[in-house]
Write a protein that binds this DNA or RNA. Structure first.
Lengths: 216, 216
DNA sequence: GCGGCTACTACCGAAACAGGTAGTTTTTCG
DNA sequence: CGAAAAACTACCTGTTTCGGTAGTAGCCGC
């Protein structure tokens, strides 16, 4: 392991573990250490101690149980990723479809593994995450894909949507009017209707709603 | 497979294909028809004809080449998904990491497959997409995960971020001041600084930038 | 201890916006 | 065809925002 050379990570992948179950933790450590190209860098039974150590001596990859006593894995992801953005974090879970997995991915985790995955799958996920992938089940992938898809049906008319798009670009009534070749008053009219339909009362509120609900 | 019972779709999965290469299209059709639990419902050489037929007689799953003569697969996804939101669309591609794949996923595709995938992988993807998954490579998954993560570093101070959050909720200067127990003028001051840092000139533009760049 | 950053307060004038009312024309669809 | 929806124009009034200038105060690091 720790060979020096230059290059950021042509060499051994250092893996750390955060897992409260001793048996699982030890088994993973042994598996990783027995594999060429990776080494178990450190192990922790809880998030708090992991956070402290990891900021001093960061590994390349961190595998973290999503359900931990004390600070949850989700919270841990946020803290560790803030302190050490370079670490790739893989969440470990027993549930296939867990809201927590989804949350931790959006907070900074890069992939996730089921605890009872085959050794081969575990090792593949570690390499995968290090070479720019996000290992995860297709069920989780679906939820992520859906979450950033455009709304299928909007209450707005075509023209109103057009106006809303311009609003989101920060244009004034006057500029939008010029862009769409109608008068400023017409834009005013459309925007009043947009406000009514979206139940908002200002440009910024409309923009926030449009972007959050992916109306545009 | 085809047991009937109740349930919404215990029976055969109807698959349609859009692929301009005759050989690939025929090979896929044969593979699908030879597999228990699915049937090849219809095939098309281009998007235009697929769109017409599919709106009359929709399949369960549509496999679509991402690069087609005439209308591109990406455009096709958008049109078909708008007309028939119930169809699960799997994109076919030869490139592993293609911007087009990413685009089509955000426009309504549910998964994607490499054209040279093993037959088993193809059949698995079809079943997968039908049972609520999004089959895709971990490289694509990573790009999607990253695209909705919060910005790691914001140019804004803590206070400014706080103000920006309130802006995104559509509050006025006065309301934000009341919320944060400072004067309206102070909010005015913070917002001027936010505008400078984000290079914007209005509330709505700031909100748009904040939400798009995930500063909050 | 001093400069730099952050947080806060204040005043001004021009511009933009929000909400209301009151119309006309065009498109869409039963 | 005729009703309904969408697109368009206009005016008015009070409120909010934007950009500029100007000053106070606390905290941190060199």
């Amino acid at each position: 392991m720790t060979n020096d050379e230059a290059g950021e990570r042509t060499d051994t992948i250092r893996v750390s573990l955060v897992e409260d179950d001793d048996e699982i933790r030890d088994a993973l450590a042994i598996l990783i250490d027995a594999t060429e190209g990776m080494t178990c860098h450190s192990t922790f039974g809880d998030c708090e101690s992991a956070i402290e150590s990891v900021s001093k001596d960061p590994p390349d990859v961190l595998m973290m149980d999503i359900e931990l006593p004390g600070m949850s894995g989700v919270e841990g992801v946020q803290k560790i990723k803030t302190a050490q953005p370079g670490i790739d974090i893989i969440m470990l879970t027993i549930h296939k479809d867990d809201d927590l997995v989804f949350k931790s991915l959006s907070l900074g985790a890069t992939g996730y593994l089921l605890k009872d995955s085959q050794p081969d799958d575990i090792l593949r996920a570690i390499r995968d995450v290090r070479s720019g992938g996000s290992p995860m089940s297709s069920q989780i992938a679906r939820r992520i894909v859906v979450s950033f898809r455009k709304a299928e049906e909007s209450p707005l008319t075509k023209r109103e949507t057009e106006v809303l798009e311009k609003l989101c670009e920060g244009h004034s009534y006057k500029m939008i009017g010029a862009d769409l070749f109608v008068s400023e008053e017409t834009i005013h009219f459309h925007i009043k209707n947009i406000y009514q339909k979206l139940q908002v009362h200002s440009k910024s509120e409309a923009v926030a709603k449009a972007l959050r609900d992916r109306l545009i």
